[in-house]
Design a binder for these strands. Structure first.
Length: 335
DNA sequence: AAATGTGGCAACCGCCTGCTA
DNA sequence: TTAGCAGGCGGTTGCCACATT
């Protein structure tokens, strides 16, 4: 029955590899190829488990392995892929030539993850950590016009706002996951049908391919009230690859991401959704002061150009939450 | 200079999937 | 058909080097 055991665990060496062992492994594989890891150690004269040999070869000795620091582009790609694939390190490594899954995993855990946490980004969901938002200080801010907020409260349908928030937070997730979140929030099954202005929202969801066919049928059965149609905030679309000018605001839809992955293409370095450059001149929220641009485009929030210098890289995303709502903001125009 | 803390990374562990006898 | 193994994968550990006190 079955195969014979791959190796006798007794008497096999563990721990760090010596240069002599490395030399034996390299020499054997150069002549015979990796082949059968079970028989390799014995044939190569190594007192190691085949598993250990495979790990040593794939993670360290393989000639095509790229050594040294990760470039900013590589880092961007890792974050981008992680937002889509999660902890599928091998899948991420497959799209980063010369990097191993172990190397990427280590780099994520020791660098990227910590930086995202410092920046108030949840490294699992890739969304801002709302628990870190100090709402009381925001409300007490002298620059925050409370009367405008009170006026806003009368205009915003809270359910629409909740959906927009969910969509924004889930912009990098798969449609299935997003659908699950929406359903968990009971946004679609029980409440959306009675939602004021939800016709436009439905349209936006469809445009972004966020609904599957059964959901679309379900949603098309209700009679929306158009009273608040013009008050729905812009539903975010997906940020564009960096080779597309940000100003064009071409939506990067989930289907595009899937297409990239399905075609086994490497995702292009992309303007990472929740990043704001250190130079706040281009900040979307700052741009609210510009009378010619009073309509907030969430697209532009998501496509703020990335910093590229080493110093800027270190403070990556650090200004994410440091926006101010100008007193002069006209919420009527905003909405 | 020694002790302690921290970060980085190679390697191991254990689980899962698919294959084979 | 099924038990059992190899290979693959993600999570975790432990060692080493460097920084800080």
């Amino acid at each position: 029955m079955g195969r014979s055991p791959c190796c006798d665990k007794n008497g096999l060496k563990k721990g760090p590899w010596t240069t002599e062992e490395d030399h034996k492994l390299i020499q054997y594989i150069q002549i015979h190829g990796p082949g059968n890891w079970r028989t390799l150690p014995k044939n190569a004269g190594l007192q190691r488990c085949g598993k250990s040999c495979r790990l040593r070869w794939t993670n360290y000795l393989r000639p095509d392995i790229k050594r040294g620091r990760f470039s900013f582009e590589e880092e961007e790609t890792i974050i981008q892929l992680h937002s889509v694939l999660g902890n599928k390190w091998s899948a991420i490594a497959a799209r980063l030539p010369g990097r191993t899954d172990n190397e990427i995993k280590n780099y994520w855990n020791t660098h990227i993850r910590k930086r995202l946490l410092r920046s108030g980004i949840d490294p699992v969901t890739h969304s801002p950590r709302l628990d870190l938002l100090d709402l009381s200080s925001l409300l007490n801010s002298t620059q925050f016009n409370l009367s405008s907020l009170l006026g806003l409260q009368a205009l915003i349908n809270p359910e629409i706002f909740r959906i927009a928030t969910t969509l924004l937070a889930s912009q990098n997730e798969s449609p299935e996951l997003l659908l699950q979140k929406l359903q968990e929030n009971q946004l679609l099954n029980t409440q959306l049908q009675n939602l004021e202005g939800s016709e436009l929202l439905l349209q936006k969801l469809q445009e972004n391919q966020l609904l599957n066919a059964p959901m679309q049928n379900q949603l098309q059965n209700f009679q929306p009230n158009n009273q608040f149609q013009n008050q729905i905030p812009e539903i975010p679309t997906f940020s564009t690859p960096s080779n597309v000018p940000c100003s064009s605001s071409q939506p990067m839809q989930l289907g595009h991401v899937e297409s990239y992955l399905m075609n086994d293409q490497m995702l292009p370095p992309q303007n990472y959704g929740y990043c704001a450059s250190d130079t706040s001149d281009n900040s979307t929220f700052q741009s609210l002061n510009n009378s010619s641009n009073q309509n907030i485009s969430l697209d532009s929030v998501l496509s703020t150009p990335l910093s590229s210098t080493e110093d800027e890289k270190e403070s990556y995303c650090s200004n994410l939450m440091k926006f101010e709502i100008p007193a002069s903001l006209n919420f009527d125009d905003f909405m």
